[in-house]
Each structure stands twice: as C-alpha cells, then as structure tokens.
Design a protein around this nucleic acid. Structure first.
Length: 633
RNA sequence: GGGGGUGUAGCUCAGUUGGUUAGAGCGCUGGCCUGUCACGCCAGAGGCCGCGGGUUCGAGUCCCGUCACUCCCGCCA
C-alpha cells in the first residue's frame, strides 16, 4: 500500500483514485497489453517491493550527475523523485547526456535494488533505482531564467514572470497543495456542519461604503458600470432573508486598494458564512471549532487555543495596545497613573495634573532588566518618532534608571509589586491620552516580546475581540462615523441609539485574531430598517441617502427578515499562517505584483479601440505619461 | 499620493579611499571521470555595472534625475 509517497497524508478518496489508476495500468500490463503511454508509476511510487518490475515513468529532469562512465538522472513529478541510471552501453546514453534540467522525458526500465552504501535514506524511493532501457524526450527546455533545483531567494519579478517554473519548486509547490487541501477541508467541514455553498454574483453594483471598487463598463447601458463585489455581504444577507438559513462560500472578493505583504492587490478569498436566527454566541459556537480543528489538522502539531478567550475591544487596547493582540507574547500592560500622579517626575506629573484623561501605562519586560536593553528600546522609540520611552529596571532589590530616581523608592516599589516584577526585569512607560498612544504602546509590547524572545512560537494563539464601538469621531474633522460595519446591530438596539452617547454604543461586532493577525470580522446584522435608519442618521446619513444606496437590502428587510449574523475568515491569511509564510505570494498560485500587475499574463493590458467603442469608453490619460500608448488597434 | 531598501554575467552575489585588465558560485560550452544523489577535476564563452545627465585626469564606486522591483505609511466599512 505504500505505492504513493506520503500516502498517509493524502485524503482517503484521493488515495483511492490514485491506487485505482495504478491498478488499471497494472492490469493492462498483466494482460500483455501495451503499457500506458506515459507511466506505470509516478516518480514517488516505487519501493523495494517493486524490484525486478519493468516500469515506465515520466517527469522533469530534476538533476543530472554525469560520471562519464555512468549517468544518474533524478526524475521529478508532483509525487516525488526517482533516480534513473544509464550505463554507457545503453543506446540512449548519448541522448541522455544531452538532456538539460527541466526537460520532460519518458523513461522505461527495470527497478533495481540499490547497494547498501548507495541507498539514499532522504528519498522515499531511495532504496531503488530504475535502470533505463528506453528514453523519449517529451519536451525540451531552453536556458532557464530561474533554476528549479535548490531554493534560494530569487527576484520577485522573475519569479512572477516565470511563475510556472517557480511553482515547480518544492516549497511553493507544497504551499499551493496545502492551500488546496485547506479549502477542500473547509468545504467538507462546512457542509458537514449544515452549511450549503451558494454562489453570488461577480458582476454587481458599486457600493458607496468601504474600499474602492473595480468597475466593469456596460456595453448595453452606455455610461453605466458594474462593480466587482468587495465581499458578498449584501447577497449573503439577502440569502438569509430568502430563508436559506446557513450559507457559506469560498468567496472571491475584489478591492482596488494598494497591496501589502499580507494583502493581495485586487483579489482575495474569504470563507464567507452567514446564519439565521442566531445570537453572537451561536456564531462563536459554530466558527470556533471549525478554525480550531482546521489549525489542528494542518498546524504541524503546534498547539491551538482550546477555548478562544473573548476580549472586549476596550480591554484589548488597554492590555495589549491593539485590537489584534499577539497573545503568544506574555505581556499585559497596566495602568500605573497613581504612581506618577503628584510625583517628582514632573513631565508625567504635570501631564496628569493638566488633563484628567491622561494615563500612564506600564509595559512590563520580564528579563529586560539591563541598561543596554532599556537604552536600545528608548532609541527604538525615538526612531518611531516618539520623544522616548521611560523605563525602570530592577537590580539588587531596587529600581534603577533616571525615572526611578525621580519618583523615589516608594513609588518604584509600588510599580514593581503591581506588575509582579523582580530583579533582572524592566518596565517601560507611555503617558498621554490613551487613544493617542495606545497603538504605539502596542508596538512597544510587540518589540519587547520579540527582542527578549518571549514569544512562544510553537502555537496558534486565538482570541475573539468583542464589543467594538459602533461609532468613532474622526480625529481631524471631529465628525461622527461608523467605526466598523454599518450593517451590524447596535448592542441595546433602538433604545441604545436613542438614549446613549453614540460614542459609548457598542456593536454586536467581533473579530477573530490569531498570533496578532486579524483573520476575520463579523457581526450580528441589523435586520430592522428603523434601527438601521437611526444608526445611519447618527453617522450623518439622511434617510434619502440610505434608501438610495442600500435600498435593495433595506427593502428586503421590510418583507420579513430573520435575525442573522456571520463572519468571513480570510482564506489567504489562514493559509499563510499554516504554511508559515510572511508573504501572500507564497500561498497564491498566480499572484499579481505590488503594482497590481500580472507579469505572467501581462495584465492589465491595452485593448483595441473597437472594444472601447463598444463599451462607450474613451480613455482620459494623465498628462504625465504622454509617451504611453495604452490603446492598440 | 508619500517614505525606505535594492539594481554588477542567464541566476545568486562580492567589488577596499574614486585608480589602470570588474571577480566568485550555480548554470552554459568543450574535455576527463563507473556509484553519484549540492558528484568531482580541467579549460572556455558569457558584462551598456538598470537608464540619462553631472563632478573628476579618471566613476561600478560620488552627486542629480529617471525607471524597475520590493517593504512600509496613506488606503483597505
């Protein structure tokens, strides 16, 4: 049964299919029929039990070792490597010597046991080799712009231009297979959990909120445009209104925004899901086991959070300085304002006296208690545009550093006991209005965790962030706006909207975070038109505008809409985490570059004037590129 | 839209304070080699030093501009 390399790791149906195919070829051979045109075995299949069999294999010439009197070829396909041996007496020796790496060949030969000292324990097929009797070149290669053998870093543009070569390389090849396996697993699991995959339109209407849309001009309706969906948000809610109860989709999403290492330009995928008649707890109870089991299945034995802690947004900001905390870092910040209030450290004391909102947060740094480390953090902070990063470090039973001197031993000791610090530890301080410095404090926390190697990397640390505020004030304009999704239900419903200060209203809105990466956002939706109109009114949108922009969905809610909610974990980021990759391009088969160009397929590209005329489009190009010729005939 | 980094052989890189003929490894070509699995040994070909301008007796090296790639900020409900 060990016909296929890594047979154990293959899903059962896939393994059965492969075995069926192999058996079919076998039967043909036994009947004396001609061999399969290309192969009786894959390059990962042959083992000691195949010794003396006459076999046929096809694949790429991975590596050639020419001893003059003896020639070895490593033949590679999707499944593995098999060593071919060609002796000088072979009529094909001369041809075999000529073959270049990455040519595709078909080879017939006899499976032979390797001598003890010639065995290669690093290869699943390393106990045998195939003595070549027939050789056919199926496809030749020219000069390679990118070697397939070996895995050093290569320039992105060359990797992307020759993506078909890059994808042959082992690590990338495995990442793409992993992605496929993950998506397949998710589909099976979601279906088993009572969800059905419903497709939603790719050509749809532009939405005024959120990211920039990709637009598609209409031929039939001059001057009008379709938009590619930023997410199937409204459609999945309409499916709930239509009574389908549980929806999911491996959904393509399109946003015309600039790329990042962890953000594809243009398009990405979500495990989009929505459920009817659910509370926030129901969504958690459904999604949490899916992600936990997925990460256990594909996480290479790393620990996965058993029960995802639920951290209110405000608490996350206070403890971690982030709404996507990396919980692998065992650092929690604390408010130590009283220790500085009225102290002789005048900078902080005066700030506190002047403004009631000012707080001092402490970032404890276990094992960071050396002047060298503290100074390094301080200059890092200055490099981040901060005035500095005050610190105390503890040694010989007392606090040291300029700050400790200023506030005195009593207050220093109070800080030490509050944070549970000891000799050899340090603590850093950020002061100001929390909203202004929380994000920097969070980065300091990450930095400290990384520098002191406090991160426990052998785990996937999940959490829910809950109780997001519905509204926030824009720092520059002072205008009130939705802080997240305008379609989510405010906690407390209409009553909260009518009675509370908008800034204090929380939403039934939640994120899933893993190792400091935001995997998804979700919400219990606002399915009541009157509450939605009220929420939009608070954010400054008139009923007319809301009716005009979201009329379709609003109207649907006037004909019997179930309470519903959902979430949409990002597939690309999940695969990144499980493949342990820092860059999205390592887990996408055919990615675009940072300028949103497909270097392999040459997109975007000019189109003919005839095509443009049909679409009633005439380009109006920026004057800065007069030499461009964006239109071909 | 803004900021940082990089750009030298097909590929990965080195190149001193500005100094005469720009190097190495992989790959390629030729030769030798019967147990390699990063095979080994010998020889050879291969360079608009991203592009344009400037400083200088002299520029791969310094300056200005520009292009390409990349990372980050803005942006991403």
């Amino acid at each position: 049964m060990s016909l296929l390399e890594n047979a154990d790791s293959l899903p059962r149906p896939m393994l059965d299919k492969c075995l069926q195919a192999v058996n079919l070829w076998r039967k043909q051979i036994e009947k004396g029929n001609t061999m399969h045109l290309y192969r009786t075995h894959t390059c990962g299949a042959l083992r000691a039990e195949n010794i003396d069999e006459q076999v046929r294999v096809s694949g790429w010439v991975h590596r050639k070792r020419d001893h003059g009197g003896l020639l070895f070829i490593d033949l590679r396909d999707h499944y593995g490597l098999t060593q071919l041996v060609i002796e000088p007496s072979s009529p094909h020796f001369a041809l075999a010597e000529q073959i270049r790496a990455e040519s595709v060949i078909r080879a017939d030969g006899k499976v032979v046991a390797r001598d003890d000292e010639a065995r290669n324990p690093n290869l699943p097929t390393g106990d045998i080799e195939v003595y070549l009797s027939e050789l056919e070149i199926l496809s030749e290669t020219g000069d390679l712009p990118l070697p397939v053998f070996g895995e050093p870093d290569y320039p992105e543009d060359i990797r992307l231009r020759y993506r078909f070569l890059d994808l042959r390389r082992d690590s990338l090849h495995r990442n793409i297979v992993l992605r496929s396996d993950i998506i397949s697993w998710l589909r099976q699991r979601m279906t088993a959990d009572g969800f059905r995959e419903y497709q939603t339109p790719i050509l749809t209407a532009s939405s005024p909120e959120g990211a920039r849309d990709f637009l598609v001009p209409s031929r039939i309706h001059p001057g009008k445009f379709y938009a590619l969906p930023q997410a199937p948000q409204q459609f999945k809610q309409l499916l709930m209104v239509a009574g389908f109860d549980r929806y999911f989709q491996i959904a393509p999403c399109f946003r015309d925004e600039d790329a990042r290492a962890d953000r594809s330009p243009g398009e990405f995928y979500q495990l989009d899901l929505e459920m009817s008649f659910v509370t926030q707890e129901d969504v958690f109870a459904c999604v949490e086991p899916v992600l936990r089991d997925l990460f256990r299945a594909f996480g290479n034995g790393k620990r996965v959070t058993e029960n995802f802690p639920r951290i209110p947004y405000a608490e996350a900001m206070q403890k971690y300085g982030s709404d996507k905390p990396d919980l692998r870092i065992p650092i929690e910040m604390q408010d130590v304002t009283p220790a500085f209030d009225g102290s002789d450290f005048k900078i902080f004391a005066n700030m506190i006296a002047k403004d009631k909102r000012v707080r001092v947060w402490a970032v404890p740094a276990k094992t960071g208690g050396s002047r060298a480390f503290c100074d390094r953090m301080n200059s890092w902070a200055q490099g981040e545009g901060q005035p500095g990063l005050g610190y105390i470090f503890f040694r010989e039973g007392e606090g040291a550093g300029p700050l400790a001197k200023n506030i005195g031993p009593e207050r220093t000791e109070k800080i030490r006991t509050q944070l549970g610090l000891e000799d050899g530890d340090a603590v850093f301080f950020c002061a100001g209005v929390p909203k202004a410095f929380a994000e920097f404090a969070g980065r300091a926390r990450n930095r400290i965790g990384a520098e002191l190697e406090l991160i426990d990397a052998d785990q996937f640390a999940f959490c829910w962030i809950v109780d997001f505020p519905m509204f926030e004030t824009d720092e520059t304009t002072g205008k009130l706006d939705f802080s997240h999704n305008p379609f989510s239900m405010p906690q407390g419903g209409m009553e909260a909207l009518e009675s509370k200060d908008p800034i204090d209203i929380l939403g039934h809105q939640y994120d899933i975070v893993c190792n400091g990466i935001e995997l998804s956002s979700g919400a219990i939706r606002n399915h009541k038109p009157e509450i939605m109109l009220k929420a939009f009114a608070i954010a400054g949108y008139s009923a007319e505008v809301v009716e005009q922009e979201f009329g379709g969905m609003l109207n649907a809610f006037r004909y019997g809409a179930p309470p519903h909610g959902g979430i949409a974990p990002g597939v690309d980021r999940i695969v990144m985490l499980l493949a342990e990759q820092e860059n999205l391009r390592e887990v996408v088969a055919f990615p675009m570059n940072q300028q949103a160009e497909d270097l392999l397929m040459q997109a975007p590209a000019p189109v003919s004037n005839a095509q443009l005329r049909e679409l009633h489009i005439r380009p109006s190009l920026p004057k800065t590129t007069p030499t461009d010729e964006p239109v071909k005939e």
